[in-house]
Protein backbone atom coordinates (compact mmCIF):
# COMPACT_ATOMS: atom_id res chain seq x y z
CA UNK A 1 0.00 0.00 0.00
CA UNK A 2 1.27 3.41 -0.92
CA UNK A 3 1.14 5.57 2.17
CA UNK A 4 0.04 9.05 1.23
CA UNK A 5 1.08 12.12 3.09
CA UNK A 6 -1.58 14.52 1.89
CA UNK A 7 -2.53 17.86 3.43
CA UNK A 8 -6.07 17.49 4.80
CA UNK A 9 -7.68 20.77 3.72
CA UNK A 10 -9.61 21.27 0.53
CA UNK A 11 -10.20 24.64 -1.09
CA UNK A 12 -12.86 23.57 -3.56
CA UNK A 13 -16.53 23.76 -2.65
CA UNK A 14 -18.90 20.96 -3.53
CA UNK A 15 -21.61 21.80 -6.02
CA UNK A 16 -19.13 22.98 -8.66
CA UNK A 17 -20.02 22.51 -12.31
CA UNK A 18 -17.34 19.98 -13.28
CA UNK A 19 -18.57 16.94 -15.18
CA UNK A 20 -18.63 13.64 -13.26
CA UNK A 21 -15.13 12.22 -13.09
CA UNK A 22 -13.46 15.46 -14.22
CA UNK A 23 -9.68 15.16 -14.07
CA UNK A 24 -9.20 18.92 -14.15
CA UNK A 25 -11.16 19.27 -10.92
CA UNK A 26 -8.97 16.73 -9.20
CA UNK A 27 -5.89 18.53 -10.47
CA UNK A 28 -7.06 21.76 -8.85
CA UNK A 29 -8.04 19.94 -5.67
CA UNK A 30 -4.54 18.53 -5.26
CA UNK A 31 -2.76 21.72 -6.31
CA UNK A 32 -4.61 23.83 -3.76
CA UNK A 33 -3.98 21.28 -1.03
CA UNK A 34 -0.32 22.07 -1.53
CA UNK A 35 -0.61 25.82 -2.08
CA UNK A 36 -3.15 26.66 0.61
CA UNK A 37 -5.33 29.70 1.11
CA UNK A 38 -2.70 32.32 0.35
CA UNK A 39 -3.13 31.79 -3.35
CA UNK A 40 -4.62 33.87 -6.15
CA UNK A 41 -5.73 31.85 -9.15
CA UNK A 42 -5.82 33.24 -12.68
CA UNK A 43 -8.05 31.25 -15.00
CA UNK A 44 -8.30 32.03 -18.72
CA UNK A 45 -11.18 30.70 -20.81
CA UNK A 46 -11.33 26.95 -20.22
CA UNK A 47 -13.42 24.28 -18.59
CA UNK A 48 -12.35 25.70 -15.28
CA UNK A 49 -14.07 28.95 -16.21
CA UNK A 50 -17.27 26.95 -15.94
CA UNK A 51 -16.31 24.68 -13.07
CA UNK A 52 -15.49 27.71 -10.90
CA UNK A 53 -19.17 28.54 -10.85
CA UNK A 54 -21.61 30.88 -12.59
CA UNK A 55 -22.53 34.23 -11.10
CA UNK A 56 -22.96 34.57 -8.11
CA UNK A 57 -21.34 31.31 -6.95
CA UNK A 58 -17.76 30.37 -6.36
CA UNK A 59 -16.37 26.86 -6.30
CA UNK A 60 -13.08 27.96 -4.82
CA UNK A 61 -12.12 29.21 -1.40
CA UNK A 62 -9.32 31.34 -2.82
CA UNK A 63 -9.63 34.47 -4.98
CA UNK A 64 -9.94 33.85 -8.69
CA UNK A 65 -9.42 36.15 -11.64
CA UNK A 66 -11.09 34.84 -14.75
CA UNK A 67 -9.53 36.20 -17.88
CA UNK A 68 -9.68 36.15 -21.65
CA UNK A 69 -8.33 33.07 -23.38
CA UNK A 70 -4.88 34.24 -24.45
CA UNK A 71 -3.92 36.07 -21.31
CA UNK A 72 -2.94 33.66 -18.53
CA UNK A 73 0.75 34.48 -18.55
CA UNK A 74 0.28 38.23 -18.73
CA UNK A 75 -2.57 38.31 -16.26
CA UNK A 76 -0.63 36.30 -13.71
CA UNK A 77 2.25 38.76 -14.20
CA UNK A 78 -0.11 41.65 -13.55
CA UNK A 79 -1.46 40.11 -10.35
CA UNK A 80 2.05 39.37 -9.17
CA UNK A 81 3.21 42.92 -9.88
CA UNK A 82 0.23 44.37 -8.06
CA UNK A 83 0.64 42.08 -5.04
CA UNK A 84 4.32 42.97 -4.86
CA UNK A 85 3.45 46.66 -5.03
CA UNK A 86 1.05 46.10 -2.13
CA UNK A 87 3.88 44.48 -0.22
CA UNK A 88 2.34 41.03 -0.43
CA UNK A 89 5.09 38.71 -1.56
CA UNK A 90 3.76 35.76 0.45
CA UNK A 91 0.74 35.03 -1.70
CA UNK A 92 1.29 32.57 -4.52
CA UNK A 93 0.02 33.51 -7.96
CA UNK A 94 -1.23 30.44 -9.75
CA UNK A 95 -1.97 30.63 -13.45
CA UNK A 96 -4.35 27.80 -14.29
CA UNK A 97 -4.84 27.26 -18.01
CA UNK A 98 -5.98 24.37 -20.12
CA UNK A 99 -4.03 23.02 -23.04
CA UNK A 100 -5.59 25.55 -25.42
CA UNK A 101 -4.67 28.38 -23.08
CA UNK A 102 -1.14 27.02 -22.79
CA UNK A 103 -0.14 25.26 -26.00
CA UNK A 104 -2.10 27.38 -28.45
CA UNK A 105 -3.67 30.75 -27.86
CA UNK A 106 -1.92 31.30 -24.55
CA UNK A 107 1.54 30.25 -25.64
CA UNK A 108 2.82 33.71 -26.52
CA UNK A 109 1.69 35.22 -23.27
CA UNK A 110 3.12 32.31 -21.27
CA UNK A 111 6.41 32.45 -23.14
CA UNK A 112 6.61 36.17 -22.44
CA UNK A 113 5.87 35.70 -18.77
CA UNK A 114 8.39 32.95 -18.18
CA UNK A 115 11.03 34.77 -20.21
CA UNK A 116 10.57 37.62 -17.72
CA UNK A 117 10.90 34.91 -15.07
CA UNK A 118 7.71 36.07 -13.41
CA UNK A 119 7.31 34.88 -9.84
CA UNK A 120 4.27 32.70 -10.53
CA UNK A 121 3.33 29.06 -10.86
CA UNK A 122 2.04 28.40 -14.36
CA UNK A 123 -0.05 25.29 -14.68
CA UNK A 124 -1.37 23.60 -17.73
CA UNK A 125 -4.11 21.16 -16.88
CA UNK A 126 -4.02 19.19 -20.05
CA UNK A 127 -7.04 17.31 -21.37
CA UNK A 128 -5.56 17.22 -24.85
CA UNK A 129 -8.26 19.05 -26.81
CA UNK A 130 -10.75 21.90 -26.59
CA UNK A 131 -13.17 20.09 -24.32
CA UNK A 132 -15.25 23.04 -23.20
CA UNK A 133 -16.23 23.80 -26.78
CA UNK A 134 -16.95 20.19 -27.72
CA UNK A 135 -13.67 18.32 -28.22
CA UNK A 136 -11.78 20.09 -31.01
CA UNK A 137 -8.12 19.29 -31.56
CA UNK A 138 -5.42 21.46 -30.02
CA UNK A 139 -1.67 21.32 -30.46
CA UNK A 140 -1.70 19.20 -27.34
CA UNK A 141 -3.86 16.54 -28.96
CA UNK A 142 -1.71 13.44 -29.39
CA UNK A 143 -0.98 11.63 -32.61
CA UNK A 144 -3.77 9.21 -33.43
CA UNK A 145 -6.60 11.05 -31.71
CA UNK A 146 -10.06 11.54 -33.09
CA UNK A 147 -11.68 14.83 -32.18
CA UNK A 148 -14.59 16.70 -33.70
CA UNK A 149 -12.14 18.59 -35.93
CA UNK A 150 -10.00 15.54 -36.66
CA UNK A 151 -12.86 13.13 -37.35
CA UNK A 152 -13.03 9.81 -39.10
CA UNK A 153 -9.93 8.97 -41.11
CA UNK A 154 -8.78 12.52 -40.58
CA UNK A 155 -7.57 11.62 -37.09
CA UNK A 156 -4.64 13.68 -35.95
CA UNK A 157 -1.49 12.78 -37.82
CA UNK A 158 0.96 15.06 -36.06
CA UNK A 159 2.61 14.84 -32.70
CA UNK A 160 1.58 16.53 -29.51
CA UNK A 161 3.65 19.63 -28.83
CA UNK A 162 6.17 19.00 -26.08
CA UNK A 163 5.36 21.80 -23.72
CA UNK A 164 7.68 20.99 -20.83
CA UNK A 165 10.61 20.98 -23.23
CA UNK A 166 9.47 24.32 -24.65
CA UNK A 167 9.33 25.75 -21.16
CA UNK A 168 12.61 24.16 -20.15
CA UNK A 169 14.15 25.85 -23.17
CA UNK A 170 13.29 29.16 -21.47
CA UNK A 171 15.62 28.00 -18.71
CA UNK A 172 13.07 28.64 -16.00
CA UNK A 173 13.94 27.53 -12.47
CA UNK A 174 11.45 24.67 -12.40
CA UNK A 175 9.38 22.74 -14.90
CA UNK A 176 7.66 19.46 -14.13
CA UNK A 177 4.97 17.06 -15.21
CA UNK A 178 2.39 15.65 -12.81
CA UNK A 179 -0.59 13.35 -12.89
CA UNK A 180 -3.85 13.20 -11.00
CA UNK A 181 -3.18 9.51 -10.48
CA UNK A 182 -0.09 10.32 -8.43
CA UNK A 183 -1.40 12.83 -5.92
CA UNK A 184 1.53 12.53 -3.58
CA UNK A 185 3.97 13.32 -6.38
CA UNK A 186 1.76 16.12 -7.66
CA UNK A 187 1.37 17.72 -4.25
CA UNK A 188 5.06 17.36 -3.61
CA UNK A 189 5.81 19.20 -6.86
CA UNK A 190 3.44 22.01 -5.99
CA UNK A 191 4.97 22.36 -2.57
CA UNK A 192 8.38 22.50 -4.19
CA UNK A 193 7.15 25.06 -6.71
CA UNK A 194 5.59 27.12 -3.93
CA UNK A 195 8.86 27.23 -2.04
CA UNK A 196 10.87 28.15 -5.15
CA UNK A 197 9.78 31.78 -5.01
CA UNK A 198 11.24 34.48 -7.19
CA UNK A 199 10.93 32.89 -10.58
CA UNK A 200 8.70 31.05 -13.00
CA UNK A 201 7.56 27.52 -12.25
CA UNK A 202 5.67 25.45 -14.75
CA UNK A 203 3.70 22.30 -13.97
CA UNK A 204 2.06 20.27 -16.68
CA UNK A 205 -0.74 18.04 -15.36
CA UNK A 206 -2.41 15.36 -17.44
CA UNK A 207 -6.10 15.63 -16.57
CA UNK A 208 -8.29 13.13 -18.40
CA UNK A 209 -11.70 14.24 -19.65
CA UNK A 210 -14.20 11.36 -19.61
CA UNK A 211 -16.40 13.00 -22.24
CA UNK A 212 -13.65 13.97 -24.64
CA UNK A 213 -11.59 10.81 -24.25
CA UNK A 214 -14.46 8.40 -24.56
CA UNK A 215 -13.97 6.78 -21.19
CA UNK A 216 -16.28 6.03 -18.29
CA UNK A 217 -16.32 8.69 -15.59
CA UNK A 218 -14.87 6.29 -13.03
CA UNK A 219 -11.79 5.63 -15.16
CA UNK A 220 -10.17 9.04 -15.27
CA UNK A 221 -7.66 8.38 -12.51
CA UNK A 222 -6.95 4.88 -13.74
CA UNK A 223 -6.23 6.12 -17.25
CA UNK A 224 -4.11 9.00 -16.03
CA UNK A 225 -2.08 6.36 -14.22
CA UNK A 226 -1.83 4.23 -17.35
CA UNK A 227 -0.46 7.24 -19.22
CA UNK A 228 2.42 7.33 -16.77
CA UNK A 229 2.85 3.57 -16.60
CA UNK A 230 3.16 3.37 -20.39
CA UNK A 231 5.58 6.34 -20.62
CA UNK A 232 3.03 8.22 -22.71
CA UNK A 233 3.15 10.91 -20.06
CA UNK A 234 6.37 10.51 -18.09
CA UNK A 235 6.67 12.10 -14.67
CA UNK A 236 9.76 14.24 -14.49
CA UNK A 237 11.23 17.53 -13.38
CA UNK A 238 13.63 19.95 -15.01
CA UNK A 239 15.56 22.42 -12.92
CA UNK A 240 16.91 25.53 -14.62
CA UNK A 241 16.27 23.86 -17.95
CA UNK A 242 19.26 21.66 -17.32
CA UNK A 243 18.89 19.11 -14.59
CA UNK A 244 16.39 16.39 -15.45
CA UNK A 245 14.95 14.07 -12.82
CA UNK A 246 12.79 11.12 -13.77
CA UNK A 247 10.25 10.39 -11.07
CA UNK A 248 8.80 7.20 -12.46
CA UNK A 249 9.90 4.56 -14.87
CA UNK A 250 7.07 3.13 -16.91
CA UNK A 251 7.27 0.18 -19.21
CA UNK A 252 3.79 -1.12 -19.91
CA UNK A 253 2.87 -1.34 -23.58
CA UNK A 254 1.16 1.74 -24.98
CA UNK A 255 -1.61 -0.52 -26.23
CA UNK A 256 -2.81 -0.82 -22.61
CA UNK A 257 -3.42 2.92 -22.60
CA UNK A 258 -4.83 3.29 -26.09
CA UNK A 259 -7.30 0.43 -26.15
CA UNK A 260 -9.32 1.65 -23.19
CA UNK A 261 -10.16 5.02 -24.75
CA UNK A 262 -12.86 5.79 -27.31
CA UNK A 263 -10.75 8.50 -28.94
CA UNK A 264 -8.21 5.88 -30.04
CA UNK A 265 -10.50 2.97 -30.83
CA UNK A 266 -10.11 3.37 -34.62
CA UNK A 267 -6.36 2.74 -34.47
CA UNK A 268 -5.03 -0.44 -36.06
CA UNK A 269 -2.31 -2.60 -34.61
CA UNK A 270 0.16 -0.97 -36.96
CA UNK A 271 -0.92 2.48 -35.81
CA UNK A 272 -0.41 1.42 -32.22
CA UNK A 273 3.04 0.09 -33.05
CA UNK A 274 3.89 3.43 -34.57
CA UNK A 275 2.71 5.21 -31.45
CA UNK A 276 4.73 2.80 -29.32
CA UNK A 277 7.76 3.70 -31.40
CA UNK A 278 7.18 7.42 -30.87
CA UNK A 279 6.70 6.92 -27.15
CA UNK A 280 9.88 4.86 -26.96
CA UNK A 281 11.78 7.52 -28.89
CA UNK A 282 10.57 10.25 -26.58
CA UNK A 283 11.34 8.17 -23.53
CA UNK A 284 14.87 7.42 -24.70
CA UNK A 285 15.39 11.08 -25.47
CA UNK A 286 14.22 11.96 -22.00
CA UNK A 287 16.35 9.32 -20.39
CA UNK A 288 19.30 10.68 -22.28
CA UNK A 289 18.58 14.12 -20.90
CA UNK A 290 18.28 12.72 -17.41
CA UNK A 291 21.76 11.32 -18.07
CA UNK A 292 23.56 9.97 -15.11
CA UNK A 293 21.37 11.82 -12.67
CA UNK A 294 18.91 9.18 -11.52
CA UNK A 295 16.35 9.88 -8.86
CA UNK A 296 16.42 7.29 -6.07
CA UNK A 297 12.63 6.92 -6.24
CA UNK A 298 12.87 6.05 -9.92
CA UNK A 299 15.48 3.44 -9.21
CA UNK A 300 13.19 1.93 -6.60
CA UNK A 301 10.30 1.84 -9.01
CA UNK A 302 12.46 0.01 -11.54
CA UNK A 303 13.47 -2.57 -8.99
CA UNK A 304 9.87 -3.13 -8.04
CA UNK A 305 8.89 -3.57 -11.64
CA UNK A 306 11.59 -6.15 -12.21
CA UNK A 307 10.57 -7.97 -9.07
CA UNK A 308 6.96 -7.93 -10.25
CA UNK A 309 7.73 -9.33 -13.67
CA UNK A 310 9.86 -12.01 -12.06
CA UNK A 311 6.99 -12.91 -9.76
CA UNK A 312 4.67 -13.08 -12.77
CA UNK A 313 6.98 -15.40 -14.65
CA UNK A 314 7.25 -17.79 -11.75
Amino acid sequence: MVQLDIPPNDYINPGHLGCPGCGATLAMKFALKALGEKTVVVIPASCWGVIAGPYPQSALQVPVLQMAFATAGAAASGVRAALDMKGDTATTVLSWAGDGGTFDIGFQSLSGAVERNEDCIFVCYDNEAYMNTGVQRSSSTPYGTRTTTTPGQGWKKTRKKNMVEALAAHRIPYAATASIAFPEDLICKFQKAKDLRGGSRFIHILAPCPTGWGIASDMSVKIARLAVQTNVFPLYEVQDGLKYTLNYQGGRPVQDYLQVQGRFKHLTGADCDQIQQKVDEDWELLRGKAGIYVDPAAARAREQRQCKSKARKS
Binding site: L65, M67, A70, T71, V79, A82, L83, K86, Q108
Partner: peptide
Amino acid sequence: MDARFLCVESEHSAMAAVIAAASTGVRA
Protein backbone atom coordinates in the same frame (compact mmCIF):
# COMPACT_ATOMS: atom_id res chain seq x y z
CA MET B 1 8.48 56.23 -9.38
CA ASP B 2 7.75 53.39 -6.97
CA ALA B 3 6.14 51.21 -9.59
CA ARG B 4 6.51 47.97 -11.45
CA PHE B 5 7.01 48.19 -15.19
CA LEU B 6 6.15 45.02 -17.08
CA CYS B 7 7.78 44.77 -20.49
CA VAL B 8 5.29 42.36 -22.00
CA GLU B 9 5.44 40.69 -25.36
CA SER B 10 2.34 42.27 -26.94
CA GLU B 11 -0.34 44.89 -26.48
CA HIS B 12 -2.80 42.13 -25.79
CA SER B 13 -0.67 41.10 -22.87
CA ALA B 14 -0.09 44.72 -21.85
CA MET B 15 -3.80 45.23 -21.41
CA ALA B 16 -4.19 41.81 -19.74
CA ALA B 17 -1.50 42.68 -17.25
CA VAL B 18 -2.99 46.04 -16.32
CA ILE B 19 -6.43 44.46 -16.05
CA ALA B 20 -4.98 41.91 -13.65
CA ALA B 21 -3.11 44.57 -11.70
CA ALA B 22 -6.19 46.77 -11.45
CA SER B 23 -8.19 43.71 -10.37
CA THR B 24 -5.68 43.27 -7.58
CA GLY B 25 -6.44 46.82 -6.43
CA VAL B 26 -3.59 48.98 -7.66
CA ARG B 27 -3.47 51.98 -10.00
CA ALA B 28 -2.46 50.80 -13.43
